[in-house]
Design a protein around this nucleic acid. Structure first.
Lengths: 208, 208
DNA sequence: GTAAAATATGAGCAATTATTCGCTTTTCAC
DNA sequence: GTGAAAAGCGAATAATTGCTCATATTTTAC
């Protein structure tokens, strides 16, 4: 078998300068996605906006898809960072308190760079490497499942798998649509009303 | 001002042969979307698969976006055709019956060509002409809002706008994810369990 | 039949986009 | 300081795609 040509794009950036380059490229991709949309995000354009040459781009990313994937990953890291701390103490709360908190957290998560979030949700074709990236929700699902397990006594649902699916899907959809598509719900009072109702929806379901 | 050149793509297909061409193009677009994905759907490829020339394509469609839009429209027509009849009698049912029926209808709707539905939901960037096409849900929203209005007496929600949003969003998300992402729920019993739970979720919320 | 209108063709041009590679500059290790 | 490795450069090339137009075929109307 022939050895892979040396021209294969390398991946790791060991020096600080190169880490800055990688950063600039990801940041530029995000900015273009938000300001100009997905189809304007060509490799040449990204490099230009990042202030680096295309050559450098291909040194760290095999193509545009990888850039977009990096943007998504970074965005999810940001969300998780802002959310992880609050998740811990939800686990030991009774159902009503826990669900209310979870909904609030979901809203908060969707308010981290909502414009980017919207573009990622609406403009990025989930193909190739981007296919699995939407697995974000699975983590939530497992966590919620665990919570239900340990509070089984308070609940009137028998199929916890199904219940987790119902709750996580509903909370995610409600907060997502509210933040990204319902301008009317952006005020603090409106959002509080949504949190109240979403909580009532889910708690009513769980406690029969 | 200069007159638009005569080369502007025309739109209507008056003869039967041309209607067949248009049909073949839309059908080919759908097939490519499903089998090869969005980015493989170039105008040349679409024409090739349809068995017509690119020239003919541009005679009826200004570009690829219009083709995709046509596919979406056709798909929604198919769904509506299969659903409209059932919708009518929901309006006069009491809450529990009505919601259960609505959920069942939503499931049915998502089972009309689910593969295409999935591609349309996940791979098509909502830009340009495709931006508004996702307004599908708004129709559901208005209809449901009307239903709540005329059954206000049975309900324990005060903000009907919010309630409509909560119910429609939840039902749509649950059925969509169940049909398209949860292989485990495809069996008839599993689907019945989902319908039961989704109904309980929404009815519990509406009747306090 | 025949002329006009409608429809179909596809090679080919234009424009865009992805990607490479020979070369320069910077940084690191000693 | 010096050599080697890392990082950066960008014009040039390759590949893809969108789209037109001069020409050919089919249909319609009379």
């Amino acid at each position: 078998m022939a050895r892979r040509p040396l021209t294969t794009p390398r991946k790791d950036a060991s020096q600080e300068r190169s880490r800055a380059t990688v950063d600039a490229l990801v940041e530029a991709t995000a900015r273009i996605l938000v300001k100009e949309g997905f189809d304007k995000a060509s490799t040449n354009r990204i490099a230009e906006v990042a202030g680096v040459s295309v050559g450098s781009l291909y040194q760290y990313f095999p193509g545009k898809e990888a850039l977009v994937a990096a943007v998504i990953e970074r965005h999810q890291q940001e969300i998780m960072q802002c959310v992880r701390a609050e998740l811990a103490d939800v686990m030991v709360q009774p159902v009503e308190k826990a669900v209310r908190k979870l909904v609030a957290i979901a809203v908060k998560a969707h308010r981290v760079d909502p414009t980017l979030h919207r573009v990622l949700a609406e403009q990025i074709p989930r193909v190739g490497k981007l296919e699995k990236v939407a697995t974000f929700n699975h983590e939530n699902y497992v966590l919620f499942r665990t919570y239900l397990d340990s509070h089984r006594g308070e609940l009137r649902v028998d199929d916890l798998e199904l219940a987790s699916f119902v709750c996580v899907t509903s909370i995610e959809a409600l907060t997502h649509n509210a933040v990204l598509h319902q301008p009317r719900m952006l005020s603090d009072e409106a959002m509080q009303a949504l949190i109240d109702d979403a909580t009532r929806l889910v708690v009513g379901y769980l406690k029969g």
